[in-house]
Simulated assay, not measured.
Amino acid sequence: MKKTTFWKDYCSIGNMGTQNYHNHRKFYPLHHFVYLPLLLIADGFGIYKIFNDSENQLLWLLFSIVIFLMLYLALMLRQHYALGLQNRLVRLEFKQRYFELFNKRSDEVEEKLSFGQIAALRFAYDEEFKVLLSKALNENISGDQIKKSIKKWRADHHRI
Rank of each mutant, 00 (worst) to 15 (best):
residue 1 M to L: 08
residue 1 M to W: 04
residue 7 W to R: 15
residue 10 Y to Q: 13
residue 12 S to I: 15
residue 13 I to N: 13
residue 15 N to P: 10
residue 18 T to E: 14
residue 18 T to F: 12
residue 20 N to T: 07
residue 20 N to M: 06
residue 22 H to G: 11
residue 22 H to N: 13
residue 28 Y to E: 04
residue 28 Y to N: 06
residue 30 L to P: 07
residue 32 H to K: 14
residue 39 L to R: 10
residue 41 I to F: 13
residue 41 I to A: 11
residue 46 G to K: 05
residue 50 I to C: 06
residue 57 Q to D: 02
residue 62 L to I: 01
residue 66 V to Y: 03
residue 66 V to S: 03
residue 67 I to R: 01
residue 75 L to H: 11
residue 75 L to T: 11
residue 78 R to G: 07
residue 78 R to K: 11
residue 78 R to F: 10
residue 78 R to D: 08
residue 79 Q to I: 13
residue 82 A to I: 15
residue 83 L to F: 14
residue 84 G to R: 09
residue 85 L to C: 10
residue 86 Q to W: 06
residue 87 N to Y: 12
residue 92 L to G: 10
residue 92 L to A: 12
residue 93 E to T: 02
residue 94 F to Y: 01
residue 100 E to N: 09
residue 100 E to V: 04
residue 102 F to D: 10
residue 102 F to C: 12
residue 102 F to I: 12
residue 104 K to D: 12
residue 109 V to E: 08
residue 113 L to A: 00
residue 113 L to Y: 00
residue 116 G to Q: 08
residue 118 I to N: 00
residue 120 A to W: 05
residue 122 R to S: 14
residue 122 R to M: 12
residue 127 E to N: 14
residue 127 E to Q: 12
residue 135 K to E: 03
residue 138 N to I: 02
residue 140 N to A: 06
residue 141 I to N: 09
residue 141 I to F: 06
residue 144 D to P: 01
residue 146 I to S: 00
residue 147 K to W: 07
residue 149 S to T: 04
residue 149 S to W: 04
residue 152 K to C: 03
residue 152 K to N: 06
residue 155 A to F: 15
residue 159 R to D: 10
residue 159 R to H: 14
